[in-house]
Write a protein that binds this DNA or RNA. Structure first.
Lengths: 208, 208, 208, 208
DNA sequence: CATGAATGAGCTTTCATTCAT
DNA sequence: CATGAATGAAAGCTCATTCAT
């Protein structure tokens, strides 16, 4: 009556799309299947999303926002940059491991495979990296001259986290390995980005 | 009469499957297309591979072997463990970046999504990790007591490399970042695994 | 309040339908597309046109009127019947060649394939033929007794012109043929209708 | 038993395609409909025709061949060129009027709307025009110097015939007109191509 | 006068797979 | 050892149209 239902179908569609995606993966996500599950015709989906890509973009968007929230929430209690960074890493891993298919659409889809990719959608994605960048910058604040580019460092940090999430989600990890310790070590290793000596030193004598 | 020509078709199929995979990507890898390219009918493929999954498993197998060869070849000239490790990291990245589709099938396919998955297939995959493990073990040879489990360390190292390969292949990296420097830094960061202090120290004061 | 603005949408729809037709062809003429272009919903079109056929009939009507105008305008300066006829032929060809999609809808649609076809719609179409008829009649004014039926002659003339328009628009003409000369000859041949000897002579000795 | 049936499905498909085409027109010709009518799945059609275009091309081809046969058969008994020409015109009209949809696919489809048009298919189409050309050439044999290009004359002749076929098939002809006389006059007019004076004369004094 | 929501039928095409031979 | 024939399911998408408001 107070029309909380006028947007129902649209959100049901997104809900169901997310569900199918999470449960069965990207390749099983079809318009028809969503429609069947949500109780409308495939055609109706097109009333709300111009095409399948648009629907997926909405999902990605949603995921990026969710991740951003989780990252920001996790970083709040930490007042020291390094602690903040550790919290961020943990939050990122958590998000990726708890929302594996979400994560997959967000970070594993190859853009060249999406016909129409709205560049604008990447902005929100970058925002998440910037959260890491800023914290990393705070840690390294003193020695701007000698450290490698902040963008590069952030990306390398991202590599670690992303590798952890995707390999674990793809069940590529030996089951005999203790999951908790693995995650701890992954975080520790990631944090070493923050402790890296300058690249010149690195090259000459990487270990000590 | 008893010439091994009968095995020709089987190997042609695998060759062609690999070619299609590398050239056009996993999503274009269909039985029909392989058959057309190899000059037989789609039906014939089923003489040698129970189904598409089986064929893909064979491809994965082959890819793992190829990667293993490349890793071993790259490590040969290095007689110092750390140099060896650096060579291994570089070789891994190179393989992943030069064979993106191959790499994807090898490491990004979710086993639970393939029907009838023979767990046995992963054995060869693990061999590749062992190459890293052994080198890592050699570096850490002295302090077995205090360092974290070798398997764990190797896996964390793998995270870094895998993250680098997949994010770069998925074109998720800011184009303004210099590719070469990024790779150098990724390798450097990965090598820090070999330089890690003991975990207890890590936890208390990760930097210093 | 009583301003004729209410007729605006109706005419916009027709305008847009014509534009889409001319620019993109009959096969792209869909209710949705028209609605999108005109800035209303597809549903609104049904307020003014019972269905797609009705809309198309309106278009045909309009096209017939347009053709009529062009024919009449072209014939104005000619005071001699034969010159008038030549002008009419040229104008007809011009119209057909310059508005291929329009022409197609006007003259190539099969009425039996349109549901609910209002035969009355053809009246305006016939007016265009009458323009030719009248001129033809003026040329032949003397020998009413022996010439074939004027309607028949006009139709045969129409055959020539229509054949020229449609084959050229369908790109069925050998590209090595000079377009201008072809048109000249087509007009010349059409004009021979006006110069035809009586049918009896025709049959006995068509040439000489 | 003597396997006259091995090619049955293929020919049934073509038969049905032709039937649908003739009965309901090009726009109603769908793979599904053909499959349903012929009793197989839509997929099976693709065993014999690579896609819808290929199927249509087969139809066109068939039609062109049929027309050629009819033209040649009709011309046989005539030993005088002009009589031969008259027979050809009549045969062409007959073919077009008796196989309206066939004719439509053959001559009214716009090639630019067919994605993949095999240029080779046009060869057979041209052969049919050449039959006219040759006969026209025989009539005009003496005065090669002054007559317009033979190709042009043939095309203009074709205009007349094509216009007659298409307008009649599209039911655009006033029902009060006697069909037989109309056809006679159309043939007569077409034959005037063979009797045309040189273009220069035409222009100076078209009627006498 | 106009809309928003929804439908159902339809489209071409691709796919992995099976079965009789 | 290999094929040719055929299937059934599924895909993304567009269409004209309706109905309640």
């Amino acid at each position: 009556m107070t029309r909380p239902r006028s947007s129902t179908l649209q959100s049901s569609i997104l809900d169901e799309a997310r569900r199918v995606l999470v449960a069965e993966g990207y390749s099983h996500l079809s318009m028809r299947r969503i429609a069947a599950a949500v109780g409308c015709t495939a055609t109706s989906i097109y009333l709300y999303y111009r095409n399948k890509d648009a629907l997926i973009h909405a999902l990605i968007d949603e995921g990026m926002e969710l991740l951003q929230e989780q990252l920001e929430r996790s970083a709040l209690p930490a007042d020291e940059p390094l602690e903040r960074m550790r919290a961020l890493c943990r939050a990122y891993l958590e998000f990726g491991l708890e929302n594996p298919e979400y994560y997959e659409v967000m970070f594993m889809l190859h853009p060249e495979r999406m016909d129409r990719y709205p560049a604008e959608k990447y902005r929100r994605a970058r925002r998440n990296l910037e959260i890491f960048s800023e914290t990393l910058g705070a840690i390294h604040s003193g020695d701007a001259a000698e450290r490698p580019d902040l963008k590069v460092l952030t990306t390398v940090l991202w590599f670690s986290l992303h590798g952890a999430v995707t390999l674990m989600n793809a069940r590529r990890i030996d089951v005999s390995i203790d999951r908790k310790e693995l995650l701890d070590q992954a975080v520790s290793h990631s944090l070493q980005i923050a402790a890296r000596p300058s690249p010149s030193q690195m090259t000459s004598s990487p270990i000590q």
